[in-house]
Design a protein around this nucleic acid. Structure first.
Length: 800
RNA sequence: GCCGGAAUGGCGGAAUAGGUAGACGCCUUGGACUUAAAAUCCAAUGCGACGAAAGUCGCGUACCGGUUCGAUUCCGGUUUCCGGCACCA
């Protein structure tokens, strides 16, 4: 038999398609299995091999599960709204719709050439109005439930892209898209109240099976901390200054307070402040710095004392100064802190610079050198003196504060509300109308989808306005409530919107009366296994978990959590060991590999190159090794004779079936393939195998290299598709050898290996070990002190 | 700085409820086939020393130390690298 991969791969892809082999059945009698991979953004560059790696893991699992009798849903779609396409449209004048369609076509063709067992009847496209109708619907539901609000805020603004960016999109002070410097700008911003779901998102993690580091990253992202809100009175004014602290027990060590420069208390009491000019100047200085600069310059503390206002420590009545400094953020806690320089390094640095008193309240460090943040006995602390346990002292401090009416226990999160608008064309229009009389009014549900209007110039307006603002017919409308003249919102939703619920749409992709039929949602939910990149485990996963939990709360979806299990694949690095990127020119195109070696070789190599969860560099040489393996597999056909079992191979077959079966479930694809390679080497040594063994081998190989496996299956006389046939089984008893090899050590050093019957007892094994000539040589002239036998593993004889 | 994860031959990587380190593949070397090359097949292949050879001995899982009959695996410390968060009070 010849290995003509081009002809074989085309043949089987057509047969699978004609048979609808991979279409999921709604409401089948079989157990369901929903495998989800992160749908791609269809960029103009097409897919690279990293995409293949991201999908191939669950592709193998899905193919195996189908053979095991599951009703498998393994869908794909396209997350097609987004800036790169729009930027391309601005540059070339080609409509994003056309660009998107062309890119989707290219991605589809690439995916199909690799032979993925995806259900192509359920493809979704987030830019399809039949899809984004429901994205808008969910937004309106959130608006109805008070989870949407609008606020003027300093936002991250990219002067080059002319868009407002979320904190997540502007990390490191650089725009995620064009990498130019981000500046601060005051804007009206739409927010989703994700912070209201912080505890639910945290609790939900307890019931899901995510990789431990994925869970940990989400916990850190949400950033829950417990502590207390403490009220400080301010001299001569009524208002109190409330701070948040995780260590209320250090209150006796408070020697000053710090507010964020923009704190509203300052403006409210400007008349009492004698150095307002100095404060205004400092504010101007801070505004010039981007958030990135603010956080980078964390060594050198700057600030200004507010002259005319001072605070009173609620536990000891001491009057203390108040400063403003940009090391305190308006966006976390209350925008003001109580400073405990003896036990917080930032406060310590500030106190040293401004010559403020430092009072030690926890023993154990040397506060002449640095702040002490460890544990120890409380001192100089009135009613808290003598406490040595942090938990107890905090508890006592809160109890006392509550008694005095000066404070209460509280919780804070690092996670912020989700800025949910972009001034861009290629996104879902936010379905909201501004009415002078009625305020913000949602577009009526029956008017959805609110379509993206046609236009020709996609360049954003100046000052970060959306291109949609230029279309009068879109902007001008009537208020659905009062019927008066009104203006339509012109901002669109961020890239993350469409991907926050796409996994639900796959369950019922063509429904036009609801986002998905509740019966189908009930059948398929939740996603059994979700695989994707580590870069998406915080933003995308937390956003989508938030949307899903909201939909659960309003009775739309049947489960609290969308994803039962989450894994992540490692990157494929370029042949040079660097991250693949267009600019470095080290990108490997899957089409090139398929052309030269075939889809089965590509699939096998991506799985074999290393631990699936770790990064590994591409190696063309090693690709050839996988090709050899498939050629040797084809070559087995020449050795086939007879039926039944080849005695010399029987145990090896059972062992390999066992190993491949369990390795796939653990995503240890590399060792599964290694086991099949080892088996094939054994078969060549034996020089013969039966048709039945050949078929078993093809079945095992099918999830990895399905085209050649189907071909072999057919050549063995089978009429039905191997992809829909049964997964091989093994007999545990036949994986156990009668004769086992035991290593014999003398004083911990390996001296010999002996063959013994499995059931041999300890004395027989030790006798055999001592009878070995090499062991005897090592024991020569020594007396045996101790003999250790670990059944079926090792003998160690200790001698002096 | 904080939170995760990792470090094993020339290379990608196997093996951890403590038990023969280096499976499988790549590279390399020798041989077979061939007019020749490619492909294929067979053999060798952690490092070092001795030996004509069969072989023998020693050293080896980032580094230092510990527990143990026995440590890549467990414990303490150090270094380096990768990922995430970062003035979060």
């Amino acid at each position: 038999m010849k290995y003509d991969f081009k002809q074989i791969e085309k043949k089987w892809q057509e047969k699978w398609e004609a048979a609808g082999a991979f279409h999921a059945q709604d409401f089948s009698e079989k157990p369901k299995f929903y495998a989800l991979v992160e749908f791609p953004y269809p960029s103009g560059a097409g897919m690279h091999v990293g995409h293949i790696k991201a999908y191939i893991g669950l592709e193998v699992v899905s193919r195996k599960r189908r053979m095991e009798g599951y009703n498998v849903l393994f869908p794909i779609g396209f997350d097609a709204f987004g800036l790169p396409t729009e930027n391309y449209a601005v540059k070339t004048g080609i409509h994003p719709r056309k660009v998107t369609d062309a890119n989707i076509k290219k991605f589809t063709q690439q995916l199909q050439r690799v032979g993925f067992s995806l259900d192509w009847s359920r493809v979704i496209d987030t830019t399809d109005e039949a899809y984004y109708k429901w994205t808008q619907w969910i937004f309106l539901k959130m608006l109805d439930h008070g989870l949407v609000f609008r606020d003027k805020a300093l936002v991250n603004y990219c002067p080059s892209c002319k868009v407002v960016l979320s904190n997540e999109d502007s990390q490191g002070g650089k725009c995620d898209i064009c990498h130019s410097d981000v500046v601060q700008k005051s804007k009206d911003v739409w927010y989703l109240r994700i912070t209201e779901y912080a505890d639910k998102l945290l609790e939900g993690l307890e019931e899901v099976d995510y990789l431990p580091n994925v869970k940990q990253q989400q916990i850190n992202w949400i950033g829950r901390s417990t502590g207390a809100f403490v009220d400080f009175s301010i001299t001569d004014i009524e208002e109190k200054l409330t701070v948040y602290t995780t260590r209320p027990d250090t209150l006796f060590g408070v020697t000053f307070m710090v507010m964020a420069p923009e704190h509203p208390v300052i403006d409210a009491h400007r008349n009492q402040i004698s150095n307002m000019e100095e404060i205004v100047a400092y504010r101007a200085e801070c505004a010039k710095k981007t958030e990135f600069e603010r956080t980078q310059l964390n060594k050198d503390k700057t600030g200004v004392r507010i002259q005319g206002l001072s605070a009173v420590n609620p536990v000891n009545g001491k009057e203390i100064p108040i400063y403003i400094s940009d090391y305190v953020m308006m966006g976390y806690g209350t925008g003001a802190i109580m400073a405990v320089p003896a036990h917080d390094q930032r406060d310590y640095d500030f106190a040293k610079k401004f010559g403020i008193e430092i009072i030690e309240v926890i023993q154990g460090g040397d506060i002449s050198k640095e702040a002490y943040t460890g544990d120890g006995e409380m001192i100089n602390s009135g009613f808290l003196n003598g406490y040595t346990n942090k938990k107890d002292s905090i508890k006592e401090a809160i109890a006392q504060l509550e008694k005095m009416g000066k404070g209460k226990a509280g919780v804070q999160y690092k996670m912020k509300d989700w800025a949910f608008n972009r001034q861009r064309y290629w996104g879902e229009p936010i379905p909201v109308i501004h009415c002078d009389k009625c305020g913000i009014v949602g577009v009526p549900y029956e008017e959805l989808p609110l379509r993206l209007p046609e236009m020709e110039n996609f360049a954003p307006g100046t000052e970060g306005e959306s291109p949609l603002a230029k279309i009068a017919s879109f902007v001008n409308c009537t208020c659905p409530k009062c019927g008066g003249k009104a203006r339509r919102e012109t901002d669109t939703m961020p890239q993350w919107a469409g991907s926050s619920w796409y996994f639900l749409r796959y369950m019922d992709p063509h429904n036009d009366t609801c986002l998905a039929d509740p019966k189908k949602l009930a059948y398929w939910s939740p996603v059994d296994w979700y695989n994707g990149g580590m870069e998406h485990v915080t933003r995308h996963m937390i956003y989508s978990r938030f949307w899903h939990r909201f939909l659960y709360d309003i009775g739309v979806v049947p489960t609290k959590e969308p994803y039962a299990k989450r894994t992540a694949q490692g990157l494929i690095l370029g042949p040079d060991g660097d991250k693949m990127s267009k600019s470095k020119g080290n990108v490997v195109d899957p089409n090139d590999v398929v052309d030269e070696y075939g889809a089965d070789v590509l699939r096998l190599y991506v799985l074999f190159m290393g631990d699936y969860e770790k990064a590994a560099p591409w190696s063309e040489k090693s690709v050839k090794g996988c090709k050899r393996f498939l050629e040797r597999t084809v070559g087995l056909m020449d050795l086939v004779q007879g039926r039944g079992v080849t005695p010399a191979l029987e145990s090896s077959f059972h062992k390999t079936v066992k190993k491949v079966t369990s390795d796939i479930e653990e995503m240890k694809f590399n060792t599964a393939i290694a086991a099949m390679m080892a088996l094939i080497n054994e078969i060549y040594d034996a020089g013969t195998l039966t048709v039945d063994e050949m078929k078993t081998f093809a079945s095992l190989l099918c999830p990895f290299a399905p085209h050649i496996s189907e071909e072999i299956w057919e050549q063995c006389g089978e009429k039905d598709l191997l992809s829909l046939s049964a997964w091989p089984t093994f007999d545990e008893a036949k994986t156990i050898d009668d004769t086992i090899e035991i290593a014999v050590q003398v004083c911990g050093k390996l001296r010999a290996t002996i063959q013994i019957p499995r059931e041999a007892d300890q004395s027989a094994v030790l006798a055999a070990a001592k009878a070995d000539s090499k062991v005897q040589a090592a024991l020569e002239g020594k007396t045996i002190v101790k003999e250790i036998y670990v059944p079926s593993k090792i003998v160690n004889i200790v001698a002096k």
